[in-house]
Design a protein around this nucleic acid. Sequence first.
DNA 1: AATGGAATGGTCAAAGATGGTCTATATTTT
DNA 2: AAAATATAGACCATCTTTGACCATTCCATT
Lengths: 159, 159
Amino acid sequence: MRLSDAIEQFIKAMLAEDEQEIELKRNELAEYFNCAPSQINYVLATRFTPDHGYIIESRRGGGGYIRIFRMEQDTSEQLLHYLNERVGDSIGALEASHLVLQLKERGLTEPLESALMQAAVSSQALSLPIPTTMKDALRARILKTMLLEIARKSKCERA
Amino acid sequence: MRLSDAIEQFIKAMLAEDEQEIELKRNELAEYFNCAPSQINYVLATRFTPDHGYIIESRRGGGGYIRIFRMEQDTSEQLLHYLNERVGDSIGALEASHLVLQLKERGLTEPLESALMQAAVSSQALSLPIPTTMKDALRARILKTMLLEIARKSKCERA
DNA sequence: AATGGAATGGTCAAAGATGGTCTATATTTT
DNA sequence: AAAATATAGACCATCTTTGACCATTCCATT
């Protein structure tokens, strides 16, 4: 298995126990995994971004640390609202994919629903001869239209 | 025997054992058969397409892989294949909507899945300043990409 | 206080590890 | 011979890992 995946899972396991927030030492973790410290930054940068639903806070110097917060939305409504804002009028394929993933990880979508959304916003599905900016605008429209359906469903379930 | 046929059979033998999904390394396989790595792509492109009942998923970089999924030969797969043919390279909003509805009525999709698909192919989501012909081509791509996800539903359920 | 070293974490670019695409050439089939 | 199919290889794209160098903070010593 990839080092980066192992580190990702390790951190996620920590988060699962400690609930919402964990603190770690970059060098310790790097030593534990026998890798360059910057590898930790790589993992954080590619798998623990705000688009993934995480916030990072860190401090250097003696007693330095890295804290990872899992963003908590009190309700599904809030998460959907946040994601909707995040999408805006334009969004890239990778970012969109992260948002869709987040939806699944927070239990708002089932695997197949998630896969359908991934398919609809994939660069593969949207490969046609128009400028990237236009594709991103299109992707935003598609994603938001689908988000609306999710919102509609979660509202029904409560009723 | 031809190289490409040998590779094809090798992969099919793997699929027979491992059931529904296998993972392989392009370079390893190429080395095993003593051929150019791109030969593997050729075999995949000519014998493991969706029309043949397979779906390919891959990743580059360290720890990269090629995964091959075999679609089940049940009625739903047949229908999806049929629909895939019917979608073609271009499809209008209304016709697409009918197809999606048909999927639901045949019990292949749940209500929310259906709603997500409707959203993604709606003329509302696809309203941007390009010719209708291009929109129809785009809609076809989106729809087909989503259909493929349904075709491998069983994989999602495991994930 | 001021200073300098130790202890941390951050950035960025290069190297490494894979897989993808495109095209010219060879081989097989028709 | 022509057309279709198969192979190889050069070049490209993407993801991962490392390492050199930078920035910040703390603490002990002046």
